[in-house]
């Protein structure tokens, strides 16, 4: 049953690669890669239990944190085109106008 779960995870990762390769915008790709990372964490955890080595869970913890940091880093880079910009929002007037589009059609 664990093997079936492993195979199902690998199938869903392969399906997700399709979205990552042919996503129309950048954000589709980032979303797919982020979700791929989450599935990789689950795959590492399951694989550790199939192999009977629970040391794999340490790698899974690390992969969770690195996945988050890399997603934020990619998004920050494509928003500011630089890593040198502080992320603080408060007290800072943003260059763009406040978002008005997409009002609910109430």
């Amino acid at each position: 049953m664990m093997l079936a779960a492993l195979i199902a995870l690998i199938v869903s990762m392969c399906l997700l690669l399709i979205r990552a390769l042919m996503g129309p915008t950048l954000y589709d790709r980032v979303l797919a890669v982020n979700s791929f990372g989450t599935k990789t964490v689950l795959l590492i955890g399951l694989m550790g239990f199939v192999m009977g080595r629970s040391d794999f869970l340490d790698i899974a913890i690390l992969y969770t944190l690195i996945n988050f940091v890399s997603t934020i880093a990619v998004l920050k880079f494509f928003r500011y085109r630089s890593f040198q910009v502080p992320l603080a929002r408060r007290g800072e007037s943003r260059a763009e106008a406040p978002v008005t589009g997409g009002e609910p059609n109430a």
Partner: peptide, 12 residues
């Protein structure tokens, strides 16, 4: 675990 993996496929 199998149920969770199937839910992953559904999300995909």
């Amino acid at each position: 675990s199998l149920l969770g993996a199937l839910l992953c496929i559904v999300g995909t």
